[in-house]
Design a protein around this nucleic acid. Structure first.
Lengths: 211, 211
DNA sequence: CAATTTTTTGACCGATTGGACAAACGTTAG
DNA sequence: CTAACGTTTGTCCAATCGGTCAAAAAATTG
């Protein structure tokens, strides 16, 4: 047709775009946006640089596509936090889901962390819009639990921050965690240890007081 | 003398090196190592690029100097965690000190986070050596408290990770925290709110059980 | 087969990068 | 004054960067 970026029309275009995005996730998450080069991504994707640029016209387009996809996956666990079940069980499930994401999608976590660390220049609107609205909504849910005496009264915003921080820590600071734990304790079991600890910390720390 | 980097001999050299390090901290912490240019640092330091290179021969030398200094400051709070006072009071003080560092030295925190995120290529030996030894030592202190029934029995390593994660979160993810809290709650008071929440979470979560 | 469209690549470009270097500048000591 | 030393800068360079382009190679269509 014309010279613009192919709009995922043919099957081969969809496939190649996926290969590129997978390679870019690997490269971006370990080097950051400015620290990554198109050549690196192209090599990781098994194609030449001009060929990659045939599917994504600019380096930033790859990053943007990656970020948009990421946010959906990223917010899913919080969206599931619902008013349906027992509050403490809901919180435990949320913590567990977040920790599983840190374990299974560490690159996505690091990509996100990289972006936030540098001031979120590309996703600030999304933070102030979509993310804030979702958090506000869930804060109200948690507040309801606190009013009903199901959860200890405390600051719901900072509770959410604490859950984010502690779980994502195992993806973003993975090398530090492993270095400190050492070869013995730093193996695959560290996520189960973390899950046990975090469950105890949050469930005991948020147990409602009598009165 | 000769052409090598001046060894902080004269007073003016010491001063200029400080100016450069201060400027580099600002630039590195917001752009990462590869994302920062010598020109940026030179401009922030108010001098020309060749002049900056007269005091630090390579870009990496600046980063390395910064990192070495950083670690001393960074580990100080944990070193203070001591067996002297009441265990719960000691833990509360540690959390408070770490949160104060996140508030007062966010650039240092972000510089460190940047390095870890990218796999800690420049400070890995320090993580496996100095840091691991310090943590191992403090883990023993905490274990003693648990044996004496002063602190709930749990995993001391992950307790330390949780304190690191929750406090540094307010420096590293500052823009996200502020975006989510919004203009009303995102002001200067957020650190006091965070302090109150974290104190409650950790102190309740670690309160020893009878028996 | 030929014609057309999509995909791939080698060669290239301007801008930016980290860094080198000699010359100029400033300061101080004799 | 001059000589010596420490400091500063303009200029330059090779490497790397993101990105273009024309043309070759495949694939598709008639």
């Amino acid at each position: 047709m014309e010279g613009s970026t192919p709009r995922g029309r043919t099957r081969i275009q969809k496939e190649k775009r996926e290969v590129i995005l997978e390679a870019a996730l690997e490269v971006f998450s370990t080097n950051g946006f400015r620290g990554s080069t198109i050549d690196q991504i192209a090599e990781a994707a098994g194609m030449s640089k001009p060929n990659l640029l045939y599917y994504f016209r600019r380096k930033e387009d790859i990053h943007e596509t990656l970020m948009h996809r990421l946010l959906d996956t990223w917010l899913a666990p919080l969206k599931e936090l619902d008013n349906i079940g027992d509050p403490m069980t809901e919180l435990r499930s949320y913590i567990r889901r977040k920790l599983e994401m840190a374990r299974d999608f560490p690159r996505e976590s690091r990509l996100f962390a990289n972006e936030i660390l540098q001031g979120a220049p590309r996703i600030m609107p999304m933070l102030e819009g979509e993310l804030k609205e979702l958090v506000d909504e869930k804060v109200e849910v948690i507040r309801g639990w606190m009013r009903n005496g199901k959860v200890a009264r405390t600051d719901p915003w900072h509770l959410i921050f604490a859950i984010w921080a502690t779980t994502q820590h195992y993806a973003d600071f993975d090398v530090q965690v492993r270095a400190v734990l050492g070869p013995d304790r730093g193996g695959d079991g560290r996520f189960e240890d973390a899950a046990r600890f975090l469950e105890q910390l949050f469930l005991e720390g948020l147990k409602p007081k009598a009165g």
